[in-house]
Design a protein around this nucleic acid. Sequence first.
DNA 1: CTGTTAGCGCGTTCAA
DNA 2: TTGAACGCGCTAACAG
Lengths: 339, 339
Amino acid sequence: MDANKITIHDIARDLEIDSSTVSRALNNSPRVAKKTKDKILKRADELGYQRNILASNLRRNVSNTIGVIIPRISRHFFSSVIQGVEETAYLAGYNVIICQTLEQFEREKNITETLFANRVDGVLISISMETLDYKHLEKFKKAGIPVVFFDRHCNIPENNNVLIDDFKAGFDAIQHLIDKGCKKIVHFSGPQELEIYKNRLEGYKKALHNNNIPFHSQYVLNSKLMENDGVENAKKLIDTQLEFDGIFSANDTAAIGAMKYLTSIGIKIPQEIAIVGFSNEPISTVINPSLTTINQPGFEMGKIATDLLLKHIKKEKGLPQSQTIIMDSNLIERESTKK
Amino acid sequence: MDANKITIHDIARDLEIDSSTVSRALNNSPRVAKKTKDKILKRADELGYQRNILASNLRRNVSNTIGVIIPRISRHFFSSVIQGVEETAYLAGYNVIICQTLEQFEREKNITETLFANRVDGVLISISMETLDYKHLEKFKKAGIPVVFFDRHCNIPENNNVLIDDFKAGFDAIQHLIDKGCKKIVHFSGPQELEIYKNRLEGYKKALHNNNIPFHSQYVLNSKLMENDGVENAKKLIDTQLEFDGIFSANDTAAIGAMKYLTSIGIKIPQEIAIVGFSNEPISTVINPSLTTINQPGFEMGKIATDLLLKHIKKEKGLPQSQTIIMDSNLIERESTKK
DNA sequence: CTGTTAGCGCGTTCAA
DNA sequence: TTGAACGCGCTAACAG
């Protein structure tokens, strides 16, 4: 941090001109003669000048940084998102601060404080499971700091969202299972406080309805998305001796837990499993050949959400105050299970 | 970014004192009377003052930011590391810039430029597969910016490293397989330019030697760690009709690829598999019950590496110029495979 | 213990 | 087209 002492003043002195001219040249201002500009750029390069971004940011009153709030980075979907975010932000010259709520509302509130204190220029967020009110996000809006929700949005108008069509994803998954002959489909759901899980459940119901299959609430098992929840759900399934010929999980982690448990006690996994929001590609075909996943494109979602956020940060003309971008989620049937 | 206009001057004017006193109070300096300090803190709180970190950083010539360079964040091991890094850095009041090389040397060089331009106070790095020379890291040392290597270090003296004992991990894995009756153990290795894979291979050789099992080079298959490399390796294994009764993989991703392929063509996976550097816990027990993993503690490694880096940044007294911290890697045998 | 003064490095007035 | 001067908000040196 103590190297590169060369400032615009050094190169100004060297060229016997004023530092403000150097600044203008370096910012490619049209208000400086081509000739002097070239001279300045050349000398700056020779001296190995590097702009002090901190000083520049302070002066311009920006941080060149966007904050990302996610439940936990070690979940494959979210790390894919981060990959997309990083890439897009990097290309635009922005830094990224990543913060994990670990699904805790308290942490989410603290994080917003930190990001605010760090003067982030914008925020991407996928809310925690415990997040039921959104006061902690209001100060961003008040301060004119744009916020974009992705995946786990909150059901409030006037928000910018980037999502998949969770209803459709759930619907498609069930229709797919039904097409393959399933009639008794268990649903591993997620916290109903989160819109996405509510919508996936609705898709499930709707598909059953369309196919004249009655809905039974005991076929729906909620969970908190942890692997162990999947184990518990599977146990409950066995204990209650519920008959089923297919599983539809709204979440990958819990599904994995369930499959682990079922295989470990020697129970044959039902022939058909579908998982929405699946992201952990490396696992998918190994764990169970008869698996259908409705993949959630984390990488692309990260890119699109960041793009949208940057547009808001740059106050691009003609940008709607708020919008919801629905991305495609693609149903992937494994080779070994195709008919 | 335009809210919170309240500065130390505002609260100084309000209290009819000097802003420098306010600054001292806010920094909890001992050189300000308890009484005035309390008064200042109270007023600051009332006015909703928030320090402008950018200005503070500029003045103190720090960035309060550490840079992390990793191959790719979507690999479970690295995202676990990030989790540890974030947590430790966050508690110490530091921000983190995460950059991915995607295993490309060119990108790694660019990234160091970016981090340097961003005036990071320190760097954590796990080098890319293509990284053979380290000139791009020299400028950090020259500028007095500490660098800590983790996992994928480079074989240069005077570095700070946080590692597992890769030789021992490889050795233990093989000894374990031998104890279980394996005699013909295939080794999926990684790029031999990276120390860690060289050392794991050495551990493999040494364990064979200790057990009077001859080493045959055709049992060693290198790869570039991608899932598809694992598939190719498995194909080669089948094509050459090599007899084997165990697999030792130095890498999880490639191992998964291999297992995918072997199962997909209906080949029974050999009874014993051991994987060093395994991190993808969610997968482990599902994919193959007869699996032993030598886990690499990403989260802890991230914490320890960050701790060490922060000590260097803070120029803690009595800190050795350079050191190598060897962490434990724990061999985990799955329930279903225990004897 | 507190105030005065002087910048950190840059970008942006206002004049010339 | 360029220069002079100022200030972003904060901290540090030196007095007193």
